[in-house]
């Protein structure tokens, strides 16, 4: 038994190292002088905060960070507001075309985003939405919606139907039942869905790269990817920015790890 414990301990240590090392490396790179980094060093001989100072002083972090939050939060809010009723209909109501709707939504979640970049670009250009916040939120909504509806439908299906049935018997309409009975009960599931939607929108790159044209509306991933000098990449600053950008989602994940893991595994849940 103790042999098993030792192998477990070694395996866990190896796993931990593999998971954390790249993050450690990013941190070290953001804190050491550039000559040293390109000299092959992995353990800084002295720490410098120049990269962070440069980052915080300029506009390279704050504006995109604000954009990212605004876009991700708008996407999340809209997605929940629009997605919950849709999920409810799919989870609880029986109507012709239900399978078609589920199929259509699933299809959207599966198809490659690159395949609609060009028409979306033309559509947004016609609407005058290139390089605007709605110009990002609307496409994000489209791609976040399927996952959100899927997760929400799963959550709603798990709720005991007799509570809303009771409300219906008491004379409430389906709407009221949904709003006052179902939604409050489903709040934990809705919150998890919101977190996942937020992470998706916050991390998205292709649309943000294609539909924004300047730092005014650029989101963080794009800003970081484009953070370059005329002839070089300021790696120290890039790593500092990368870590700052990852911080919010890392905190979210650490705080809600259990929920996220659970909601992502529908197979397990439906059998529990």
């Amino acid at each position: 038994m103790s042999a098993r414990r030792i192998t477990t301990a070694i395996a866990v240590a190896l796993l931990g190292a593999a998971l954390v090392y790249p993050l450690y490396f990013a941190l070290a790179a953001s804190l050491m002088p550039e000559e040293e980094l390109f000299g092959g060093s992995r353990f800084p001989s002295r720490l410098v905060i120049d990269h962070y100072r440069a980052l915080f002083a300029g506009d390279t972090l704050w504006r995109p960070l604000g954009n990212s939050f605004l876009v991700a939060l708008s996407t999340t809010a809209s997605c929940i507001v629009i997605g919950t009723p849709c999920a409810y209909a799919i989870a609880r109501l029986r109507f012709p075309g239900r399978n078609a709707v589920v199929g259509a939504i699933l299809t959207v979640s599966m198809f490659p985003q690159i395949s609609i970049v060009s028409p979306l670009y033309l559509l947004l250009r016609t609407l005058g939405l290139i390089d605007s916040y709605p110009g990002l939120v609307l496409p994000y909504l489209t791609f976040a919606m399927p996952l959100a509806v899927w997760l929400l439908a799963g959550t709603l299906r798990e709720l005991p139907p007799w509570l809303e049935e009771a409300a219906l018997v008491d004379g409430a309409t389906r709407f009221r039942a949904l709003l006052y009975v179902v939604v409050p009960m489903a709040l934990p599931g809705i919150a998890t869905t919101a977190i996942l939607t937020f992470i998706y929108a916050y991390n998205e790159f292709l649309f943000a790269l294609s539909f924004t044209v300047g730092p005014e509306h650029q989101t963080l991933p794009v800003a970081i990817a484009l953070l370059r000098g005329r002839y070089q990449i300021p790696w120290g600053e890039v790593m500092a920015a990368s870590l700052m950008a990852s911080l919010p989602v890392m905190l979210l994940v650490l705080a809600f790890q259990r929920r996220i893991a659970r909601s992502l595994s529908p197979g397990a849940r439906s059998r529990r």
């Binding site: 954390v20 991390n203 790593m239 990368s242 990852s246 989602v249």
Partner: peptide, 17 residues
Amino acid sequence: ATALLPWAIPTVVTALI
């Protein structure tokens, strides 16, 4: 919890690192 970190951070960041 640590295991979820790489999954959560933006792909752009992963690629840069």
